[in-house]
Design a protein around this nucleic acid. Structure first.
Length: 284
DNA sequence: CGCCGGACCTGTGGGC
DNA sequence: TGCCCACAGGTCCGGC
């Protein structure tokens, strides 16, 4: 499910509501989805909520952090008495209110609030570990730069690109070691905006295309954040609301529909097993 | 080390 | 209507 803009949206919402709350109870029904000792969470207070790539990090005041990966169909729903939070309405994909059979973890807080972790496909996970170890955990230590990191200059981006000459550009964008946070929707959309054929190898890209790609990757992610994420199927934010990015998506999941620029039919192919959508006329 | 296919899960939607 | 297959915002692992 969520890529950088979706996770960023959830992170910002959770930062607003969780900081300062104390965890009083923790429930789970699928042990393989929780790594670490959940008893370490009880009576700890939330200090900060952060994001790295597609992971949410909830820092606690006992030196522990809760890492959460939503993978394809994970949802984090926060509910308290205030009307702006999630209030039991039916949500995709099951069209049922939460909690339901896809609810695998529930945090309870000292103000009576709940944080539900739903995940239809059970790919997601929660990991409890020392805050100091977070950046050394394998998935995090190998991540490439955040797209909006000021240290990631155009020159730096191009240098990193040129080290991966034989890789197809679409697959490289999905490689979290190259760039952290881009997923399938935004990779497809960025390549369209940059007029680049997703099958092209990095070595075949012009300097101008690399420059345009850098710009457009950041652009689509920014539009995604402003739209509150992309609700193609199951995504909702921490308050149960859908994002609006699919209103701006021009190729993703639009096979057979006309390209908004030239009218040619959008094609779908598989690259690395992932659906890849592009305009055969505009993307070279 | 690089790349690829399959695995992990459950549900939906389209075609016949 | 019902069945079967393709497909789904992501990693991770084993094999060549």
């Amino acid at each position: 499910m969520p890529e950088l803009p979706e996770v960023e949206t959830i992170k910002r919402q959770l930062g607003e509501v969780l900081v300062g709350l104390t965890i009083t109870d923790f429930w789970l029904d699928t042990p393989k989805m929780v790594i670490g000792k959940s008893e370490e969470l009880i009576k700890t207070k939330v200090v900060e909520v952060r994001r790295r790539a597609k992971l949410i990090e909830i820092d606690l005041n006992n030196g522990r952090t809760v890492l959460i990966h939503l993978k394809m169909t994970g949802q984090l729903l926060y509910q308290d008495n205030s009307s702006k939070t999630y209030q039991d309405k039916p949500l995709p994909p099951l069209k049922k209110s939460t909690p339901n059979k896809s609810t695998h973890v529930i945090f309870t807080f000292d103000n009576g609030a709940k944080l539900y972790f739903n995940d239809l496909r059970k790919f997601g996970y929660i990991k409890i570990l020392p805050t100091n170890d977070v950046e050394h955990t394998r998935i995090l230590s190998e991540f490439g730069p955040e797209p909006f990191d000021p240290d990631l200059t155009l020159e730096n981006f191009i240098t990193r690109l040129k080290k991966r000459k034989t890789m197809k550009i679409k697959q490289l964008l999905l490689d979290q070691k190259f760039l952290a946070g881009v997923g399938n929707i935004y990779a497809n959309e960025a390549l369209f905006k940059a007029n680049i054929d997703p099958r092209k190898k990095v070595a075949e890209l012009s300097e101008e295309q690399m420059k345009e790609l850098f710009k457009q990757v950041k652009n689509v992610l920014e539009v995604g954040i402003k739209a509150g994420g992309a609700s193609d199927q199951t995504y909702v934010n921490a308050f149960g609301e859908k994002g609006k990015f699919m209103d701006y998506a021009v190729v993703y999941r639009r096979k057979g529909k006309p390209c908004e620029t030239c009218g040619a039919k959008i094609e779908r192919i598989a690259l690395g097993g992932r659906g890849t959508f592009f305009c055969p006329k505009c993307q070279l």
